[in-house]
């Protein structure tokens, strides 16, 4: 037996690293989350690419158009859906309460989640680009398009991660979070220009879609994957990158405010 020693607490950075590792293992070892979040968008890309291989004008295939949408949907799944379901689960099974009773710095929990979202997002984007390029000859972005690609992905992912954390507080458990968030995500995908060309969506649905981040993520990514000539087919007649940044930025702020206001470490009651 050693006498009580006054050792100092581990540094915040080292606990961040621990939580990052924990979150990666939690995600990649769970078959449901890997299939649902990672494999599903890839399967959709394979199926849509094989079935809807028509020309949308200007020698551009629908698969090229769909690439932007499915990347946006993949980001949505890795961030909003993933966070809402996993945090609701951890709140209802007592994991969050357990952690808040330890000297773990609270920030470490969120850093771990961000590491998870980042890893899953990068992985899904790389797989989608590889499958699109190799199986369907999708033309990859070039030059400054990559910069647009990175900031749209980063900003969209941040907004959706914060929204996912906020939404998790509305659900009783992981199952109810999934039941709540999956249909919403699906509807948003249909009206935001993921599965169809956005210009074919009725105007009133376009208006609704424009209130949410997914439409702006898909639009920003279309500017990356499509030739500039197709900007004329957009509702505004241009890619509106300034507005993309503005709307996604506002959603980041709203999401953060909702998180701060609603996040709980315990179930109600």
């Amino acid at each position: 037996m050693t006498a009580t020693t006054e050792r100092s607490l581990p540094s915040v950075g080292s606990v961040w690293r621990t939580r990052g590792g924990v979150e990666l293992k939690e995600f990649f070892r769970q078959r449901e989350s890997v299939v649902f979040t990672l494999a599903f968008p890839v399967i959709l890309l394979v199926v849509f690419g094989a079935v809807l291989d028509y020309d949308i004008g200007g020698g551009v295939t629908f698969t090229q158009y769909f690439m932007a949408g499915i990347v946006a949907a993949g980001i949505l799944g890795a961030s909003l859906q993933n966070m809402a379901i996993s945090i609701a689960t951890e709140r209802s099974d007592g994991t969050l309460k357990h952690l808040s009773g330890t000297p773990m710095p609270k920030s470490a929990y969120f850093v771990g989640k961000v590491v998870q979202v980042l890893a899953v997002t990068v992985l899904i984007v790389v797989i989608l680009l590889a499958v699109g390029r190799l199986a369907y000859g999708v033309v990859l972005p070039s030059g400054s398009d990559w910069i647009t690609f990175v900031w749209v992905t980063a900003l969209g992912s941040s907004a959706c991660t914060l929204l996912g954390i906020a939404v998790s507080s509305l659900a009783k458990n992981g199952r109810s979070a999934s039941a709540m968030v999956t249909p919403i995500a699906l509807v948003l995908q249909f009206i935001s220009g993921v599965f169809f060309q956005f210009s074919q969506v009725p105007t009133w649905m376009q208006t609704i879609a424009a209130l949410f981040p997914l439409k702006w993520m898909a639009q920003g990514l279309r500017s990356v994957f499509l030739p500039d000539a197709l900007a004329a087919a957009e509702p505004a007649g241009s890619w509106e990158l300034g507005r993309v940044a503005l709307v996604l930025g506002i959603w980041c702020i709203v999401g953060l405010a909702l998180c701060v206001k609603t996040f709980r470490w315990q179930d109600r009651g």
């Binding site: 924990v22 293992k25 939690e26 070892r29 769970q30 099974d93 007592g94 994991t95 969050l96 309460k97 357990h98 952690l99 009773g101 330890t102």
Partner: peptide, 15 residues
């Protein structure tokens, strides 16, 4: 300096 053993939580994991 304190340890808490709750009725549930902590062990429900892929780790």
């Amino acid at each position: 300096d304190i340890g808490i053993v709750l009725q549930s939580g902590g062990g429900d994991s892929q780790l």
